Simulated scan of single mutants.
Amino acid sequence: MSPDPDCPFCEIVQRDDPDAREVYRDEHVVAFFPLEPATLGHTLVIPREHLADIWALDGATAGHLAQATLRVADAVRKAMNPEGLNIIQSNGEAATQTVPHLHVHVVPRWHGDAVGRIWPPETNYSDDQKDDAWERLRSECRTELQ
């Protein structure tokens, strides 16, 4: 797939963004700081190929992305000494994806940082709702594996 001329992440891949704070690059991925990091050390890992979201991702690219994410997570741990770490990958506007180029956030965390909680403290789904979702997902996974 060719670069998207309107994609700011493709611009970074092509080295057309002089403001990019790049931390890692290989033949498959690029890792860099976002313009507005959630915490110091927050790094984005992207495939060099323009893929809009996880549903456009193939297994080989997923493997390269996962390896690079592990490498960046290790570097963040050594360089920033965080108390924790979030790995976040969002798809679609409803999930807060703002740039339609697949990316993984590696976010070092500290108690009291500006990010705060990322999960609701509780939910109120009924057992019937949970069982229905469980059965639908389990059935779909079995179909995919056959």
Results as ranks from 00 to 15, higher is better:
residue 15 R to H: 14
residue 1 M to L: 13
residue 77 R to M: 12
residue 68 A to R: 03
residue 78 K to F: 02
residue 39 T to M: 02
residue 70 L to S: 13
residue 11 E to G: 11
residue 42 H to T: 09
residue 53 D to G: 09
residue 15 R to I: 09
residue 127 D to R: 13
residue 95 A to E: 11
residue 142 R to K: 14
residue 45 V to G: 11
residue 101 H to T: 01
residue 42 H to K: 12
residue 116 G to P: 04
residue 125 Y to M: 12
residue 91 N to G: 03
residue 55 W to N: 14
residue 74 D to N: 11
residue 107 V to Q: 01
residue 22 E to R: 12
residue 110 W to Q: 14
residue 9 F to C: 11
residue 60 A to R: 11
residue 70 L to A: 15
residue 110 W to F: 15
residue 5 P to I: 06
residue 118 I to A: 05
residue 58 D to L: 06
residue 84 G to A: 12
residue 36 E to G: 09
residue 75 A to F: 04
residue 76 V to K: 11
residue 116 G to R: 04
residue 116 G to K: 04
residue 104 V to M: 08
residue 100 P to S: 13
residue 79 A to S: 13
residue 129 Q to M: 13
residue 115 V to K: 07
residue 141 C to W: 07
residue 111 H to N: 12
residue 71 R to Q: 10
residue 77 R to W: 06
residue 8 P to V: 12
residue 13 V to D: 02
residue 119 W to E: 11
residue 5 P to T: 00
residue 86 N to T: 09
residue 12 I to V: 15
residue 114 A to T: 05
residue 72 V to K: 00
residue 130 K to M: 15
residue 106 V to S: 01
residue 132 D to I: 06
residue 8 P to F: 04
residue 72 V to G: 08
residue 115 V to F: 04
residue 64 H to I: 00
residue 88 I to V: 15
residue 65 L to D: 05
residue 103 H to M: 08
residue 136 R to S: 09
residue 96 T to W: 05
residue 53 D to Y: 03
residue 98 T to K: 07
residue 84 G to C: 02
residue 78 K to R: 15
residue 129 Q to Y: 00
residue 128 D to R: 13
residue 84 G to S: 03
residue 2 S to R: 10
residue 8 P to T: 10
residue 22 E to A: 06
residue 12 I to N: 03
residue 4 D to Q: 02
residue 66 A to W: 02
residue 113 D to V: 09
residue 105 H to M: 01
residue 21 R to E: 10
residue 127 D to E: 15
residue 71 R to P: 07
residue 129 Q to G: 02
residue 79 A to N: 02
residue 33 F to G: 01
residue 143 T to E: 15
residue 62 A to N: 08
